[in-house]
Every structure is written in structure tokens, then in C-alpha cells.
């Protein structure tokens, strides 16, 4: 199993990468860690004619505090999210979620920006960013723009990102004092989540409960209205459209998401 042939370039700067992406148009695909893209290309479900490798752009590899927010370069690898002291202090949910992505080898290559840009509804980090109410900085030939995560996804593997734009940064509010938890339910340790729930500061992000990462808004509203955790968690499947596969039926996922939401909220409450 090998990809179809393609041309390849590794620009030295972000500006060069954006210019090249504009030039190549829809025939081009961006490669960061490659752990979403290469598997798809190997089974020939994806066959770009041109691959632009941004995996070594130091400009995209940083984690820093900026005012009320933490800014994370899109090229930051999962492993670096796990070990980051800044994230551990400012948004501890992120290292905890990143630690559950794939396996050590995958975490050594996969990137935060790549995971968010790919937008698999079963992946962990989109729901975490959703629970944190973060935002995504996009850059293209027309300049930069910032999109709130709640407005980012439009469907399975699709977002408001234009084909000539790159995810360059993820901005998260500093939540060092807030209660948080991540409950991920898998069959095997490195499987995709059957369902997972990310909680931070009363906000709830859901993994694999629909065509995109979702917020459990009914649960959040119930909590705001002073309902108990158990009562709020019982609403976690409202507005979801969970998928069916060999690991779970929609009914199972609906039941599971309530259990995991309750557990996550209890853990977050301390």
C-alpha cells in the first residue's frame, strides 16, 4: 500500500508555503506531521498531485502566553503539547487530551494544526479546543483571519478554511484555575474514541457524536441554570447525531456520552 505519485516541495518559510499553495491551487495538499494525510494517500482515498511539506517550519512550532491567551503554533507536535510546562500551567486540559492521541510514535509526528485542519469528528483535539472556546488563526494570500472554533467546522472533514489558507495558530484562553477533565472511551488504548468528552470550566466538548466535534449545549445550559451534574449530564446527547460502526450503535453512543459527561463533570468539579 503506497501513495499514488505526486510532486513534493518543502518551502523554507511560511510565506513561501502560502505562495506555493496559492500557485498550485486545489491540486495541492499541505503535509505537516502526515499522520492523517499519508494513511489516506496510502489507501488511495486521497491522491493530491502536489504535496507542500510544512512539517519543519520553525515559525509554526511554539507555545507562548500572550495576554489572556496561550498561542500555540499549528506545527506543534502532540508530544510537545504533552510535555509543555506552559500548557500544564495554563490549559492543563490540552496536555491531558494530547496524551491520549494515537500512540507515542503518532504523537511524535502528528501536529495540533494538522489534527484541527483535518477535522475528523472522532479525533480528540477539536473537541478539547471546543471545550476551551479557543480560536484558530488562518493565513492565506489575502492575509490572516481568526475564527472561533465554534464557527470553524462545517461538516465531516470540512471547515471554513479556504483551500489556499493554512491553519497557522491556535489560541486558547488561559484556564489554569478552571476545573477540567477528559473522559475518552476506546476499545483499545490507541484506538479512535468511540465517544469522548472534554470538559473545562463548565463547557463540554464531544468527540464522535456527529459529523463534527460538538458542544453539549443543553448540558452547559442546565449547569448554568443550577441543575445538578447528573441532571445536566443526562442531556449530553441532545442535538447529537452519533454514527454507527462496529464499535458502537447510535443508542450506545448516546448512553455512553451521558455517563462520560457525568464522570468528566464530577472530575472537573474536584
Amino acid at each position: 500500500m503506497i501513495p499514488l505519485a505526486f510532486d513534493y516541495a518543502r518551502p523554507d518559510t511560511l510565506d513561501d508555503a502560502i505562495a506555493l499553495l496559492a500557485e498550485k491551487g486545489e491540486d495541492a495538499t499541505v503535509l505537516a506531521g502526515g499522520h492523517s494525510l499519508i494513511p489516506v494517500m496510502k489507501v488511495r482515498l486521497g491522491a493530491p498531485e502536489f504535496v507542500i511539506d510544512i512539517g519543519r517550519l520553525a515559525e509554526l512550532d511554539y507555545i507562548r502566553v500572550e495576554g489572556d491567551e496561550v498561542a500555540i503554533g499549528a506545527g506543534t507536535k502532540h508530544r510537545d503539547l504533552v510535555t509543555s510546562e506552559v500548557l500544564g500551567a495554563e490549559v492543563p486540559l490540552v496536555p491531558a487530551v494530547a496524551r491520549t492521541v494515537g500512540d507515542p510514535q503518532v504523537r511524535a509526528r502528528g501536529t495540533l494544526g494538522g489534527s484541527l485542519a483535518h477535522g475528523d469528528p472522532a479525533s480528540d483535539l477539536p473537541a478539547a479546543v471546543l471545550a476551551l472556546d479557543g480560536s484558530i488563526v488562518l493565513r492565506g494570500p489575502r492575509g490572516s483571519r481568526t475564527v472561533g472554533i465554534a464557527d470553524f467546522y462545517t461538516g465531516v472533514f470540512s471547515s471554513v478554511k479556504e483551500p489556499d489558507e493554512l491553519v497557522v495558530e491556535i489560541r486558547l484562553p488561559r484556564k489554569g484555575d478552571a476545573g477540567w477533565a477528559y473522559e475518552k472511551f476506546t476499545r483499545r488504548s490507541n484506538d479512535w474514541a468511540i465517544v469522548a468528552v472534554a470538559v473545562c470550566d463548565g463547557k463540554v466538548g464531544l468527540v464522535n457524536m456527529g459529523s463534527t466535534a460538538l458542544r453539549a449545549t443543553a448540558t452547559e445550559e442546565a449547569l448554568t441554570a443550577g441543575k445538578s451534574i447528573a441532571e445536566a449530564a443526562a442531556l449530553a446527547d441532545e442535538g447529537t447525531e452519533p454514527p454507527a460502526d462496529t464499535s458502537g450503535t447510535p443508542a450506545y453512543r448516546r448512553a455512553l456520552v451521558k455517563v462520560l459527561t457525568r464522570r468528566a463533570l464530577e472530575t472537573a468539579a474536584g
Binding site: 476499545r187 483499545r188 488504548s189 490507541n190 484506538d191 460502526d245 462496529t246
Partner: peptide
């Protein structure tokens, strides 16, 4: 606990890769 080769009604295998077929790792 984990493994089963599954086909759909059309005879398409639903467990045709190691990502789908449940061989345990050390962690299980």
C-alpha cells in the same frame, strides 16, 4: 473480548485493517 471478523450484508469486510480488527496491545 476483542476480536471478530465482521462482514456487512453485502459481504464487505468491516474489519479489513489492523485499525479495525481488534488485536490487543500490551495496554489491554
Amino acid at each position: 473480548l476483542l476480536e471478530e471478523v465482521v462482514y456487512d450484508e453485502e459481504g464487505q469486510p468491516l474489519t479489513g485493517t489492523f485499525a479495525d480488527y481488534g488485536i490487543p496491545s500490551a495496554a489491554e
